[in-house]
Design a binder for these strands. Sequence first.
DNA 1: GCCTGTATATCAGTTATGGATATAACGATA
DNA 2: TATCGTTATATCCATAACTGATATACAGGC
Lengths: 121, 121
Amino acid sequence: MTDPRPRPKPPFKITPVVFHVLLAMSEDSAHGYRIMQEIEERTRGSIRVGPGSLYFTLNRLQEAGMIRETPGPEGDDGDARRKYYRLTEFGRAILGSELEVLTEIVELAREKRLLRDEGVA
Amino acid sequence: MTDPRPRPKPPFKITPVVFHVLLAMSEDSAHGYRIMQEIEERTRGSIRVGPGSLYFTLNRLQEAGMIRETPGPEGDDGDARRKYYRLTEFGRAILGSELEVLTEIVELAREKRLLRDEGVA
DNA sequence: GCCTGTATATCAGTTATGGATATAACGATA
DNA sequence: TATCGTTATATCCATAACTGATATACAGGC
Protein backbone atom coordinates (compact mmCIF):
# COMPACT_ATOMS: atom_id res chain seq x y z
CA MET A 1 0.00 0.00 0.00
CA THR A 2 2.99 2.29 -0.34
CA ASP A 3 3.07 4.66 -3.24
CA PRO A 4 5.19 3.13 -5.95
CA ARG A 5 5.88 6.42 -7.65
CA PRO A 6 5.87 9.97 -6.39
CA ARG A 7 2.95 12.01 -7.61
CA PRO A 8 3.55 15.43 -9.09
CA LYS A 9 2.44 17.97 -6.55
CA PRO A 10 -0.23 20.39 -7.73
CA PRO A 11 0.22 23.98 -6.56
CA PHE A 12 -3.44 24.15 -5.59
CA LYS A 13 -6.28 21.78 -5.00
CA ILE A 14 -7.54 19.79 -7.94
CA THR A 15 -11.25 20.33 -7.51
CA PRO A 16 -13.82 18.67 -9.77
CA VAL A 17 -13.95 21.82 -11.87
CA VAL A 18 -10.17 21.90 -12.30
CA PHE A 19 -10.09 18.21 -13.07
CA HIS A 20 -12.78 18.38 -15.72
CA VAL A 21 -11.20 21.38 -17.37
CA LEU A 22 -7.91 19.51 -17.65
CA LEU A 23 -9.68 16.41 -18.94
CA ALA A 24 -11.55 18.39 -21.56
CA MET A 25 -8.23 19.59 -22.94
CA SER A 26 -6.51 16.22 -22.90
CA GLU A 27 -6.98 15.43 -26.56
CA ASP A 28 -6.90 18.66 -28.51
CA SER A 29 -6.39 22.23 -27.68
CA ALA A 30 -9.66 23.86 -26.79
CA HIS A 31 -11.12 27.23 -26.01
CA GLY A 32 -13.13 28.21 -22.96
CA TYR A 33 -16.62 28.14 -24.28
CA ARG A 34 -16.08 24.76 -25.89
CA ILE A 35 -14.74 23.37 -22.62
CA MET A 36 -17.88 24.51 -20.85
CA GLN A 37 -20.04 22.69 -23.35
CA GLU A 38 -17.94 19.56 -23.38
CA ILE A 39 -18.03 19.16 -19.60
CA GLU A 40 -21.77 19.51 -19.57
CA GLU A 41 -22.14 17.00 -22.40
CA ARG A 42 -19.79 14.39 -21.06
CA THR A 43 -21.19 14.44 -17.54
CA ARG A 44 -24.71 14.55 -18.98
CA GLY A 45 -25.42 17.80 -17.24
CA SER A 46 -24.48 16.62 -13.78
CA ILE A 47 -21.57 19.02 -13.72
CA ARG A 48 -22.10 22.51 -15.04
CA VAL A 49 -19.28 25.02 -14.98
CA GLY A 50 -20.33 28.64 -15.16
CA PRO A 51 -18.22 31.34 -16.79
CA GLY A 52 -17.09 32.55 -13.39
CA SER A 53 -15.42 29.31 -12.39
CA LEU A 54 -14.26 28.58 -15.91
CA TYR A 55 -12.26 31.68 -16.71
CA PHE A 56 -10.98 31.91 -13.18
CA THR A 57 -9.78 28.32 -13.46
CA LEU A 58 -8.20 28.83 -16.87
CA ASN A 59 -6.17 31.78 -15.60
CA ARG A 60 -5.05 29.84 -12.60
CA LEU A 61 -4.04 26.82 -14.63
CA GLN A 62 -2.07 29.01 -16.98
CA GLU A 63 -0.26 30.79 -14.16
CA ALA A 64 0.59 27.43 -12.64
CA GLY A 65 2.01 26.19 -15.93
CA MET A 66 -0.49 23.39 -16.41
CA ILE A 67 -1.87 24.81 -19.65
CA ARG A 68 -0.57 27.32 -22.15
CA GLU A 69 -2.16 29.39 -24.85
CA THR A 70 -1.63 28.19 -28.39
CA PRO A 71 -2.66 29.25 -31.85
CA GLY A 72 -5.90 27.60 -32.87
CA PRO A 73 -5.97 24.22 -34.56
CA GLU A 74 -4.77 23.88 -38.16
CA GLY A 75 -7.16 25.64 -40.50
CA ASP A 76 -9.11 27.41 -37.82
CA ASP A 77 -9.16 31.08 -38.59
CA GLY A 78 -12.80 31.09 -37.69
CA ASP A 79 -13.33 33.24 -34.71
CA ALA A 80 -10.81 35.80 -33.56
CA ARG A 81 -12.35 36.00 -30.12
CA ARG A 82 -11.39 32.47 -29.24
CA LYS A 83 -8.39 31.71 -27.07
CA TYR A 84 -7.03 28.23 -27.44
CA TYR A 85 -5.23 26.41 -24.69
CA ARG A 86 -3.39 23.15 -24.52
CA LEU A 87 -2.03 20.97 -21.72
CA THR A 88 1.63 21.28 -20.82
CA GLU A 89 3.64 18.24 -19.77
CA PHE A 90 3.17 19.29 -16.19
CA GLY A 91 -0.56 19.59 -16.68
CA ARG A 92 -0.67 16.19 -18.27
CA ALA A 93 1.26 14.70 -15.35
CA ILE A 94 -1.14 16.21 -12.84
CA LEU A 95 -4.13 14.93 -14.79
CA GLY A 96 -2.57 11.47 -15.03
CA SER A 97 -1.93 11.42 -11.32
CA GLU A 98 -5.51 12.35 -10.52
CA LEU A 99 -6.74 9.69 -12.90
CA GLU A 100 -4.68 7.11 -11.08
CA VAL A 101 -6.42 7.94 -7.84
CA LEU A 102 -9.77 7.60 -9.57
CA THR A 103 -8.72 4.31 -11.11
CA GLU A 104 -7.91 2.90 -7.70
CA ILE A 105 -11.26 4.03 -6.38
CA VAL A 106 -13.09 2.41 -9.27
CA GLU A 107 -11.19 -0.85 -8.75
CA LEU A 108 -12.04 -0.79 -5.08
CA ALA A 109 -15.66 -0.19 -5.97
CA ARG A 110 -15.65 -3.19 -8.29
CA GLU A 111 -14.16 -5.43 -5.62
CA LYS A 112 -16.81 -4.35 -3.18
CA ARG A 113 -19.59 -4.74 -5.74
CA LEU A 114 -20.69 -1.16 -5.34
CA LEU A 115 -21.63 -0.59 -8.95
CA ARG A 116 -25.18 -1.13 -10.06
CA ASP A 117 -23.99 -2.72 -13.28
CA GLU A 118 -21.69 -5.63 -13.72
CA GLY A 119 -23.13 -7.62 -10.86
CA VAL A 120 -21.46 -10.81 -11.99
CA ALA A 121 -19.06 -9.92 -14.80
CA MET B 1 -24.66 8.87 -25.45
CA THR B 2 -28.06 8.97 -23.81
CA ASP B 3 -28.33 7.86 -20.23
CA PRO B 4 -29.54 4.27 -20.20
CA ARG B 5 -30.85 4.50 -16.67
CA PRO B 6 -32.05 7.44 -14.63
CA ARG B 7 -29.68 8.44 -11.89
CA PRO B 8 -30.99 9.02 -8.39
CA LYS B 9 -30.97 12.74 -7.84
CA PRO B 10 -28.94 13.90 -4.86
CA PRO B 11 -30.52 16.72 -2.84
CA PHE B 12 -27.19 18.57 -2.80
CA LYS B 13 -23.90 18.47 -4.59
CA ILE B 14 -21.78 15.38 -4.17
CA THR B 15 -18.45 17.02 -3.50
CA PRO B 16 -15.24 15.02 -3.01
CA VAL B 17 -15.71 15.19 0.74
CA VAL B 18 -19.26 13.86 0.52
CA PHE B 19 -18.21 11.17 -1.89
CA HIS B 20 -15.34 9.92 0.26
CA VAL B 21 -17.48 9.89 3.37
CA LEU B 22 -20.06 7.73 1.59
CA LEU B 23 -17.35 5.47 0.23
CA ALA B 24 -15.78 5.03 3.65
CA MET B 25 -19.08 3.74 4.96
CA SER B 26 -19.81 1.43 2.07
CA GLU B 27 -18.69 -1.75 3.75
CA ASP B 28 -19.41 -1.50 7.44
CA SER B 29 -21.01 0.99 9.66
CA ALA B 30 -18.48 3.48 10.88
CA HIS B 31 -18.11 6.38 13.25
CA GLY B 32 -16.87 9.85 12.40
CA TYR B 33 -13.36 9.70 13.67
CA ARG B 34 -12.76 6.39 11.96
CA ILE B 35 -14.04 7.80 8.67
CA MET B 36 -11.57 10.66 8.94
CA GLN B 37 -8.70 8.24 9.40
CA GLU B 38 -9.83 5.89 6.68
CA ILE B 39 -10.06 8.62 4.06
CA GLU B 40 -6.60 9.82 4.89
CA GLU B 41 -5.21 6.29 4.79
CA ARG B 42 -6.83 5.21 1.56
CA THR B 43 -5.92 8.35 -0.35
CA ARG B 44 -2.43 8.25 1.19
CA GLY B 45 -2.88 11.63 2.74
CA SER B 46 -3.83 13.39 -0.45
CA ILE B 47 -7.30 14.01 0.88
CA ARG B 48 -7.69 15.09 4.45
CA VAL B 49 -11.08 15.86 5.93
CA GLY B 50 -11.06 17.99 9.04
CA PRO B 51 -13.64 17.73 11.82
CA GLY B 52 -15.41 20.79 10.47
CA SER B 53 -16.27 19.29 7.09
CA LEU B 54 -16.77 15.84 8.52
CA TYR B 55 -19.41 16.45 11.14
CA PHE B 56 -21.14 19.00 8.97
CA THR B 57 -21.27 16.44 6.18
CA LEU B 58 -22.48 13.63 8.44
CA ASN B 59 -25.38 15.75 9.67
CA ARG B 60 -26.30 16.71 6.17
CA LEU B 61 -26.17 13.14 4.91
CA GLN B 62 -28.35 12.02 7.77
CA GLU B 63 -30.93 14.74 7.17
CA ALA B 64 -31.00 13.80 3.50
CA GLY B 65 -31.58 10.15 4.34
CA MET B 66 -28.37 8.86 2.82
CA ILE B 67 -27.05 7.50 6.10
CA ARG B 68 -28.66 6.61 9.38
CA GLU B 69 -27.39 6.10 12.87
CA THR B 70 -27.11 2.50 14.03
CA PRO B 71 -25.99 0.67 17.11
CA GLY B 72 -22.32 -0.20 16.96
CA PRO B 73 -21.09 -3.38 15.34
CA GLU B 74 -21.63 -6.72 17.10
CA GLY B 75 -19.56 -6.94 20.23
CA ASP B 76 -18.55 -3.30 20.29
CA ASP B 77 -19.33 -1.82 23.64
CA GLY B 78 -16.04 -0.02 23.57
CA ASP B 79 -16.54 3.67 23.52
CA ALA B 80 -19.84 5.24 24.39
CA ARG B 81 -18.90 8.49 22.71
CA ARG B 82 -18.93 6.92 19.28
CA LYS B 83 -21.84 7.38 16.94
CA TYR B 84 -22.10 4.73 14.27
CA TYR B 85 -23.65 5.37 10.90
CA ARG B 86 -24.51 3.17 7.99
CA LEU B 87 -25.56 3.76 4.39
CA THR B 88 -29.23 3.65 3.55
CA GLU B 89 -30.44 2.23 0.26
CA PHE B 90 -30.74 5.74 -1.04
CA GLY B 91 -27.20 6.56 0.02
CA ARG B 92 -25.95 3.42 -1.64
CA ALA B 93 -27.75 4.33 -4.86
CA ILE B 94 -26.23 7.80 -4.88
CA LEU B 95 -22.78 6.37 -4.26
CA GLY B 96 -23.26 3.83 -7.03
CA SER B 97 -24.35 6.51 -9.42
CA GLU B 98 -21.31 8.64 -8.69
CA LEU B 99 -19.09 5.61 -9.12
CA GLU B 100 -20.59 5.02 -12.55
CA VAL B 101 -19.58 8.48 -13.65
CA LEU B 102 -16.07 7.86 -12.37
CA THR B 103 -15.96 4.51 -14.12
CA GLU B 104 -16.80 6.14 -17.43
CA ILE B 105 -14.10 8.73 -16.90
CA VAL B 106 -11.52 6.08 -16.12
CA GLU B 107 -12.48 4.12 -19.23
CA LEU B 108 -12.21 7.24 -21.33
CA ALA B 109 -8.80 7.88 -19.82
CA ARG B 110 -7.65 4.39 -20.73
CA GLU B 111 -8.81 4.79 -24.31
CA LYS B 112 -6.97 8.05 -24.61
CA ARG B 113 -3.84 6.64 -22.95
CA LEU B 114 -3.87 9.28 -20.27
CA LEU B 115 -2.61 7.07 -17.48
CA ARG B 116 1.09 6.91 -16.74
CA ASP B 117 0.91 3.17 -16.15
CA GLU B 118 -0.41 0.54 -18.44
CA GLY B 119 1.07 2.02 -21.56
CA VAL B 120 0.65 -1.21 -23.46
CA ALA B 121 -1.37 -3.57 -21.28
C1' DG C 1 -4.30 11.21 39.29
C1' DC C 2 -2.16 12.67 35.03
C1' DC C 3 -1.25 12.68 30.31
C1' DT C 4 -1.98 11.37 25.55
C1' DG C 5 -5.04 9.98 22.19
C1' DT C 6 -9.80 9.30 20.81
C1' DA C 7 -14.20 11.38 19.74
C1' DT C 8 -17.81 14.72 18.75
C1' DA C 9 -19.03 19.46 18.02
C1' DT C 10 -18.99 24.42 16.72
C1' DC C 11 -17.18 28.59 14.90
C1' DA C 12 -14.58 31.82 12.10
C1' DG C 13 -11.88 32.82 8.20
C1' DT C 14 -10.78 31.49 3.60
C1' DT C 15 -11.52 29.58 -0.86
C1' DA C 16 -14.36 27.89 -4.65
C1' DT C 17 -18.39 28.04 -7.22
C1' DG C 18 -22.52 29.70 -9.82
C1' DG C 19 -25.30 33.21 -11.66
C1' DA C 20 -25.86 37.79 -13.24
C1' DT C 21 -24.09 41.12 -15.98
C1' DA C 22 -21.16 43.42 -19.53
C1' DT C 23 -19.12 43.67 -23.91
C1' DA C 24 -18.37 42.47 -28.43
C1' DA C 25 -17.87 39.82 -32.52
C1' DC C 26 -19.91 36.32 -35.51
C1' DG C 27 -23.54 34.35 -38.83
C1' DA C 28 -27.77 34.41 -40.90
C1' DT C 29 -31.22 36.81 -43.05
C1' DA C 30 -34.16 40.12 -44.54
C1' DT D 1 -26.48 47.20 -43.98
C1' DA D 2 -29.46 46.78 -40.07
C1' DT D 3 -30.95 43.57 -36.91
C1' DC D 4 -31.16 39.46 -34.11
C1' DG D 5 -29.73 35.31 -31.82
C1' DT D 6 -25.61 32.85 -30.69
C1' DT D 7 -20.86 32.48 -29.54
C1' DA D 8 -17.14 34.02 -26.64
C1' DT D 9 -14.39 36.15 -23.02
C1' DA D 10 -14.43 38.59 -18.75
C1' DT D 11 -15.64 40.44 -14.10
C1' DC D 12 -18.31 40.81 -9.93
C1' DC D 13 -20.91 39.30 -6.08
C1' DA D 14 -23.55 36.28 -3.19
C1' DT D 15 -23.50 31.84 -1.59
C1' DA D 16 -21.64 27.33 -0.62
C1' DA D 17 -17.98 24.44 0.95
C1' DC D 18 -13.80 23.64 3.24
C1' DT D 19 -9.96 24.16 6.65
C1' DG D 20 -8.07 24.91 10.96
C1' DA D 21 -8.65 26.39 15.61
C1' DT D 22 -10.90 25.74 19.66
C1' DA D 23 -13.83 23.44 23.12
C1' DT D 24 -15.29 19.58 25.74
C1' DA D 25 -14.97 15.13 27.54
C1' DC D 26 -14.03 10.22 27.87
C1' DA D 27 -10.62 6.12 27.54
C1' DG D 28 -6.49 3.81 28.55
C1' DG D 29 -1.74 3.53 30.03
C1' DC D 30 1.45 4.63 33.47
